[in-house]
């Protein structure tokens, strides 16, 4: 691989947008998929109900608990991988499972919402809900709920609740070519563009390629065939939106590590086969 460059286009608490130049699309796609399916996070996987007189069934509440993202930045280094925890009992192992608990009840005339913030960590204070205000259930008068939830590391391939990324996309960058000798500045392309990527400024048709979504409406409408829209050969944008379990940049790093380790594994397997053939 030759020269390549990475540029951060956008970054905040939830999303990161990176522009890659010189990195093959296949590698970026592997990265994108690893972010969705292979980067582990913590999520509630087993719920033991001690009491539930609310109007929602145990299963529905357990499902809602599973979907609540738990903070996993520290947990990634602390807990064992999903493969190592297959036969482990949740109550027994502190290396595999984090224990959380939820207890609430209401008085005779009370109606109360129970939020994800009421889900309290027992064994590990760092594994806690990423959002405090997700409603879990609404309790009516004289209703109660008490449960133990056990969270473990898992991957998006097993269940989407473990996926750290809600959005993970690789997109092309637009390239707009205007043939100045053919363009008669009729303005039809400007009119039809849904993203204001084209504008007539003075005596030229100005292009804003970063706004273009390559819908090619302008190409279709141009009477003199002066405009053509393609994508840049060697530039792509990777966008990752975090569920809140991991910081978005952490997702990119972890995904990259996973892709690299998978390639190493492939290489070592191939070497074994080649050696065996030489000997045989």
């Amino acid at each position: 691989m030759g020269k390549f460059a990475v540029e951060v286009i956008e970054k905040d608490e939830k999303t990161v947008k990176l522009k890659f130049k010189g990195v093959p699309l296949q590698i970026l796609n592997a990265l994108r998929r690893a972010a969705l399916e292979y980067v582990p996070t913590m999520a509630v996987d087993l719920v033991v109900f001690r009491d539930n007189t609310s109007v929602l069934h145990d299963e529905i509440i357990a499902h809602r608990l599973g979907l609540i993202p738990l903070k996993s930045d520290e947990a990634l280094n602390k807990y064992k991988s999903p493969e190592e925890c297959v036969d482990v009992k949740p109550e027994e192992s502190l290396d595999c499972y984090a224990h959380l608990t939820l207890e609430a009840s209401t008085g005779p005339d009370e109606v109360k919402d129970i939020y994800s913030g009421d889900l309290k960590p027992v064994t590990d204070p760092k594994v806690r809900p990423a959002y405090d205000r997700i409603p879990i259930v609404r309790l009516g008068p004289r209703q109660s709920i008490a449960l133990d939830a056990y969270a473990r590391l898992g991957r998006g391939v097993e269940h989407i609740k473990w996926s750290p990324a809600t959005i993970s996309t690789v997109t092309y960058l637009a390239q707009i070519n205007v043939d100045v000798s053919k363009c008669n500045l009729c303005g039809k392309c400007v009119e039809v563009c849904p993203r204001e990527a084209l504008a007539i400024e003075g005596n030229v048709l100005k292009t804003y390629e970063d706004r273009c979504i390559i819908c090619r409406q302008c190409v279709r409408v141009c009477p003199t065939e002066a405009i053509d829209v393609t994508h840049k050969e060697d530039e792509y944008i990777l966008t990752i939106e975090s569920s809140g379990a991991l910081r978005p940049e952490r997702i990119v790093f972890e995904a990259l590590k996973i892709v690299a380790s998978k390639l190493d594994m492939l290489l070592s397997r191939l070497e074994l086969i080649v050696k065996a053939e030489v000997r045989g």
């Binding site: 529905i60 979907l67 609540i68 205000r133 997700i134 409603p135 809600t166």
Partner: peptide
């Protein structure tokens, strides 16, 4: 639905915490 979903059915983005507001 009985109660507002924790996540968007299609993309999985967390939306439950924003319902009340």
């Amino acid at each position: 639905m009985v109660i507002f979903p924790v996540r968007c059915f299609t993309c999985g983005s967390v939306i439950g915490d924003k319902w009340e507001y």
